[in-house]
Write a protein that binds this DNA or RNA. Structure first.
Lengths: 199, 199
DNA sequence: ATATAGTGAATGGCTATTCATTCATTGTAT
DNA sequence: ATACAATGAATGAATAGCCATTCACTATAT
């Protein structure tokens, strides 16, 4: 088996094991077993346990970025673009629970340990949202009073928290489609009745 | 020194240490040192390390619930109530970084380990949001199409993600006041230009 | 004097990492 | 075509260090 193949086998195994047990409870031997390699083999591809975690982020989130950017290429309405982002994010998280858990738990856990927090794949992913918002503002579709740097966090945070119930294992209270629709309704139109000010 | 006093001394020390190092990197001896007690003393008040973490949630979030409920008592406009919740949450998180980090990281970390996820203080806290939304719907101030169970997560997720930058140590891009105002603008009115549909 | 609270060194279990060895593949000489 | 050598990927048992928990002992209060 050639190197590249084994590298990604370990990455996928690690994603699965980290999601199931968490970084600190995951044993190297668990990952090795899952990847069907020897414990020592892992150290031919990674420097240490933490290095595996970082690589999981880089590769898994990198793939997510590629995917959503491709989808966004064929859209030009900023409203639709936000919808595409939300739909994609929630459906990926619903399908790939391992990735969802790693993002939700381990990414935050390790944020403290990563020095250059802004210079990583995760930030790149979230910045897609602010780019869309800025685009919408240039076209006067989104309000100029909205600060893209704050709104991107609000939007991502909403999606992330909503998808969290799926990883914790609470019985599904709502579908991906409904969750997507609700988040978009809230962000685009807010939750006020249009004539609420009359009351 | 009497029992109750020492118990809370350990809780506060643990909050500080968990925030700084994370649950798994925190040593019992760190907590003991911070609380100025012997390692063994901790086991007079808690069963084990994980029990300390659970107690931290229960007590710290419990206090947060009391505080925000008291503030909400003197409001009756659901719009204002949501504002009070956001303002309180963000200002507490900005001030009490230790609590913020414990909520953001360890809560998620431990969610996997806690069996009955819905029956805890954290859920009680987030449910305050859905209660406010339902109230607003009864008064026809909030749209009936909004699902409180989804909106509560979106709202909390937004606040949580926004406050995360303060704990990670990124230089402050925005103030508590501005963040609060932006979240409320987004949730109440959305981000669309009022006349965006004309474009 | 007894009970209760507190102490902190010692224990024991756990696991990341190492490294001497094996194995499979490729190259070279005859 | 065959034998032998060289390479480096892969292995997994052994090491070494960490740290939660315990417990025999001390201090304090009544």
């Amino acid at each position: 088996m050639k190197a590249a193949n084994k590298h990604s086998k370990i990455i996928h195994a690690a994603t699965k094991v980290f999601a199931k047990k968490g970084f600190f409870n995951a044993r190297i031997s668990d990952i090795a077993k899952e990847a069907k390699v020897a414990d020592g083999t892992i150290y031919l591809y990674f420097n240490n346990k933490f290095d595996i975690l970082i690589s999981v982020f880089e590769e898994e989130i990198g793939a997510l970025i590629e995917q959503v950017k491709k989808l966004l290429d064929s859209e030009d309405d900023p409203r639709e673009m936000l919808a595409v982002f939300a739909k994609n994010h929630l459906s990926v998280m619903k399908k790939n629970k391992h990735l969802a858990e790693v993002i939700q738990i381990e990414l935050r856990q390790s944020a403290k340990l990563i020095k250059d927090y802004r210079n990583n794949k995760f930030s790149e992913y979230v910045d897609i949202i602010s780019t869309i918002i800025k685009l919408g503002q240039e076209q006067s579709i989104y309000r100029a009073s909205i600060r893209p740097g704050i709104a991107k966090r609000a939007f991502f945070g909403a999606l992330d928290e909503i998808s969290r119930v799926w990883t914790v294992g609470i019985s599904t209270e709502y579908s991906v489609e409904e969750a997507t629709q609700q988040v978009l309704e809230i962000f685009l139109c807010g939750i006020l009745e249009p004539d609420a000010s009359l009351h």
